[in-house]
């Protein structure tokens, strides 16, 4: 009992419990069947135990995703807490997989679990990394695309945390626009 108490009290609780999901593209299965919950955690120490146990994103095969979402939110547009929202999207050039991808993803995870966005952290749903041959993508998902103040604050802080230059522009896209797009490009609702 003392050991259990020590284990609990020595760890640093996070504001939220988070769920890590893994997606592996198997064309013989449905999209949902390819999505698996890996585990949930709610302390800083348990986050690191998980992070050091799983593959770096850059080592995953094309077609795989990791998603980190607040407990209770599924990593898909259809979830009630996502469907009115959108994402700040970071698109990477192919060569950045070897130079920046893992650093950007870890920074994204730390922004989420550390509640970096202050009161606007309430607006955060999660983050997704897509490993793709044509170029990897990282995105932070927020719950309400119409919440201009929250969305733009999150975008500015996120860009700064990634260390992106002022010359780089990142865009926020509403999921509703992504879901109904006709071409390959979704219009940006906001940019920073």
């Amino acid at each position: 009992r003392e050991a259990l108490a020590a284990e609990i009290w020595d760890k640093h609780p996070l504001q939220n419990r988070w769920a890590l999901w893994f997606f592996k593209n198997d064309k013989s299965k449905t999209w949902q069947a390819n999505l698996r919950l890996v585990t949930k955690f709610s302390t800083a120490e348990d986050f690191w135990a998980l992070y050091s146990h799983i593959q770096l994103a850059s080592k995953l095969t094309s077609g795989c995703d990791y998603s980190l979402f607040k407990d209770g939110i599924e990593p898909m547009w259809e979830d009630n807490r996502n469907k009115r929202g959108g994402r700040w999207l970071i698109t990477l050039a192919k060569q950045q997989r070897h130079t920046e991808l893992d650093r950007f993803w870890l920074e994204t995870l730390l922004c989420l679990i550390g509640e970096t966005f202050g009161p606007y952290s309430e607006d955060i749903c999660g983050a997704v990394i897509n490993i793709r041959a044509k170029g990897d993508k990282i995105a932070i998902w927020t719950r309400e695309a119409e919440n201009r103040d929250g969305v733009t604050h999150i975008g500015r802080v996120y860009k700064e945390r990634l260390g992106l230059s002022h010359k780089v522009v990142i865009g926020y896209q509403a999921h509703a626009d992504t879901a109904t797009k006709s071409g390959s490009l979704t219009k940006n609702k906001f940019v920073v």
Binding site: H12, A44, W48, E107, L110, E115
Partner: peptide
């Protein structure tokens, strides 16, 4: 209520603690 906020430095230190 209060929000538990951890900066980058603190979280990185948690990584290295035994």
């Amino acid at each position: 209520g209060t929000r538990i906020i951890y900066d980058r430095k603190f979280l990185m230190e948690c990584r290295n603690s035994p």
